[in-house]
């Protein structure tokens, strides 16, 4: 049986909007799940209280509810992820205060060992908070490394050295470049998260580079030397005679350096035969003639396997 919304908020049916609002605020402050993390009962009650207020707090909806036009569920609110869903995960640390254990220092070293840098200090100088930045770098800058400047909203700037081979999602820590410390404590660090902008030609797989290389019909048939772009600039590569579309050739050592070892991956070049824009009569005549005695079937395996 449906619960009476007035009973949920603990108010009379004749209560004024102001009384309803006050009742809601009182209950919501007590039960709010972001302040009662892990307490299921409070969370369930909070949901009921919010749902009740959603209807009774709006004079129009309340009148419809009183007339029996809508039931106690009313309209669904959009579902957002709650603060508590994030607060204890990795990112939530940004907002945590690390000062909660300072008075535990009298319990001996175990707490400073357990909870790290803040436990041992009782009061006084505190390290400043870390600041977080997001830096978009071009594909080739990420692959080759280099220096980039991040300009902050207040006009100051931060120089960031990007190690060659960095990937999206990696974070560069700049010691002492965060917010100033408290009471003479050292400043925090700047944490620069890198986002690598995709390249129109090159894609990256681990330390390897992949690129698709268009070749002409005659290059495919006869083979030959062609120019291929690499992250170091163009190099000459030999196309073997009779290379089909989809064939992959390897350029050893033309990939991305591993930021730790400096060893480079390879570049894989996928060939793609591109016909001339216009099929002229000479090519057409040749092909017609060639077809007569040189039929071949590249789809034989397809039929076998289907």
């Amino acid at each position: 049986m449906a619960e009476d919304l007035y009973a949920v908020l603990g108010v009379d049916r004749g209560a004024s909007q102001e009384e309803i609002r006050k009742a809601y605020r009182r209950l919501a402050k007590e039960l709010h799940p972001d302040f009662n993390p892990g307490d299921r009962t409070a969370e369930e009650r909070f949901k009921k209280v919010s749902a009740a207020y959603e209807i009774l707090g709006d004079p129009e909806k309340r009148a419809r509810y009183d007339r029996g036009e809508i039931d106690e569920t009313g309209a669904e609110k959009p579902q957002y992820r709650h603060y508590r869903d994030f607060a204890e995960t990795g990112a939530g640390e940004r907002y945590h205060t690390g000062r909660g254990f300072e008075d535990f220092a009298d319990l001996g070293d175990i707490f400073s060992e357990l909870f790290g840098r803040t436990a041992r200090r009782r009061a006084g100088p505190m390290r400043g908070p870390d600041l977080r930045y997001h830096l978009v770098v071009d594909f080739l800058d990420a692959v080759r490394g280099g220096r980039r400047r991040v300009v902050l909203p207040d006009g100051s700037a931060l120089d960031v050295t990007i190690p060659a081979g960095i990937e999206s999602g990696q974070v560069i820590r700049l010691r002492g470049k965060g917010a100033p410390g408290f009471e003479g404590g050292p400043p925090g660090d700047a944490l620069v998260e890198i986002e690598v902008r995709p390249h129109p030609l090159f894609t990256r797989e681990g330390d390897d580079i992949r690129v698709t290389l268009p070749i002409t019909l005659d290059e495919a048939v006869l083979g030959g030397k062609v120019e291929v772009p690499t992250i170091d600039g163009p190099v000459r590569m030999t196309i073997p005679r009779g290379a089909s579309s989809g064939r992959v050739l390897r350029l050893r050592g033309k990939g991305v350096p591993d930021p730790r070892t400096g060893r480079r991956g390879d570049q894989y070049v996928r060939l793609e035969i591109v016909l001339p824009e216009q099929i002229d009569s000479e090519l057409e005549t040749f092909m017609r003639r060639w077809r007569e005695n040189h039929a071949y079937d590249p789809r034989a395996r397809l039929r076998e396997m289907a």
């Binding site: 957002y80 992820r81 709650h82 603060y83 907002y95 977080r132």
Partner: peptide
């Protein structure tokens, strides 16, 4: 505490959830 990118603040899901909570505290809970 948003991130900063190209002179502008950038907010992630954690920041958005916290902002919703702040607005809720202010607007709905007074």
């Amino acid at each position: 505490r948003p991130a900063v990118r190209d002179h502008e603040y950038r907010f992630d899901e954690l920041d958005l959830a916290r902002l919703r909570l702040l607005c809720e505290l202010r607007e709905e809970l007074g």
